[in-house]
């Protein structure tokens, strides 16, 4: 009678942007909060003197920069808060600013401790 799995997947996937998550704020506010968290993370990491671009060659650089890991971390952590429907006040803008600042601080001070660079450049560890 109740095909729970089918119904769940059907409702989750019918062309919607929210899926199974119960986001209470409107999609315009979600978009605005994403833009705010990305901009705040980039600007605050520039204030902390993280370089804007990774060192050359860009495609093989392990260095952190303001453009590459910081907005990804900020947007990812903000998405986790969003799908748990914890948006704090002003439709998530305050939370977006806090997460942007914290992710810039994380990239500046803790990133190399949590994700250390590989020892031997391109080759990885010896067998």
């Amino acid at each position: 009678m109740f095909d729970l799995m089918y119904n769940t997947i059907f409702f989750a996937s019918y062309g919607n942007v929210y899926g199974l998550s119960n986001i209470a704020i409107s999609s315009f506010d979600v978009l605005l909060a994403y833009i705010v968290t990305i901009f705040v993370s980039i600007i605050f990491s520039l204030i902390l003197r993280i370089p804007l671009l990774p060192s050359k060659p860009y495609r093989y650089s392990f260095d952190v920069s303001a453009i590459y890991p910081t907005p990804i971390i900020a947007a990812g952590v903000f998405s986790i808060f969003l799908v748990l429907n914890y948006t704090f006040m002003y439709n998530g803008i305050v939370l977006a600013i806090i997460i942007g600042i914290l992710s810039a601080l994380f990239v500046k001070y803790l990133f190399d401790f949590v994700f250390p660079k590989p020892l031997d450049g391109d080759e990885g560890e010896d067998i």
Binding site: I9, A12, S13, N16, V17, Y18, G19, L20, S21, I23, V30, P69, I72, I73, A75, G76, V77, S79, I80, L82, V83, F115
Partner: peptide
């Protein structure tokens, strides 16, 4: 991630793939 959580799920997937 998109199946489960919509567009935020895709961005969470990018974060996890980065880790």
């Amino acid at each position: 991630g998109y199946l489960l959580l919509g567009i935020p799920g895709g961005i969470i997937a990018a974060f996890f793939v980065f880790i």
